[in-house]
Amino acid sequence: MTAQLSVEDFSLVFRTRHGTVRALEDVSLSVERGEIVGVVGESGSGKSVLAYAVMGLQDAAARVQGGRIRFAGLDMLTASEGALAGVRGRELAMIFQSPRTALNPIRKVGRQIEDILRQHANLPGRDLRDQAIAALARVRIPDPQRRYEAYPFELSGGMCQRVMIAMALACSPFLLIADEPTTGLDVTTQAVIMDLIRDMSREARMSTLLITHDLGLAGEYCDRIAVMHAGHVVEIAPAAELLSRPAHPYTQQLLAATPTPRSTVEGLVSIPGQLPDLRHDLPPCRFSARCARHSPICDEKPLPWTSLTPTHSVRCRVPLWG
């Protein structure tokens, strides 16, 4: 089976006034067909940068330093802007956090879905409206005929996110990138939205890349989880295994810092230190300064991947097991 999306040794820097920020370094990741892969890490770990790079929507200050991103046979880094625009919205879709600002505030939501259908779906004009309403109905928006006429400010945050999902799924994409789709929504709405995303990917055998800082959420909905720290992917494993048997010290600490129904506030542990400054020279393992298990061997270059099992890999010289 070939992967729907494969990211290989991908490195990206931002050139800023205050120096070069090495935002992503040697990131490798793949998403198979129908699979939900979570990318988890604290703020600033490079999750969203990775998502935008896959979309080909990186900031103007971003420079790709190396590696490859292949999606459905297309090399996303060398493809023309025209080829990318043809893929985006049709085969590759994205939903964002803060759905209310991510929708055009002065255009009816139905019209915004129509814009995408008109561009990609090759439908006769008279069917656009019906298809847009059908897209709204598919994400279980009640009374879709009426909602078609609504402006984003007339809808709740959860409704806006459903509209975003309806837009993303309007053309049945192969891969959905969900960047913190439930941040800012209340917990019940969060569950509804995540159930919706999972159901959609199961029904249509759609692949999903879920970007989140919430390890609990990722554990619940993802098949596999990649943990990111300071621009590195440090561990990849099937979700259940990653949660029960983390191999990277950072993953372990991230788990200890994640509230569960059984934990108390006192039981939560905060991770010491903070993300290193990505503008400076960094040790091969960017977690070493925060790591209790740090030993001289950690400072030897290069930092290799270790396969603990065929599906569980960790990027650590002194993993917790294996």
Binding site: A85, R88, F96, A102, N104, D115
Partner: peptide
């Protein structure tokens, strides 16, 4: 630079449409 322009780009809308319907009208 707004979120909804980014959404329009992520949806693969043509450049003219993004410039006029999304950015300029706002």
């Amino acid at each position: 630079g707004s979120d909804f322009t980014r959404t329009a780009r992520a949806a693969g809308l043509p450049r003219g449409k993004i410039l006029v319907t999304y950015a300029f009208r706002n």
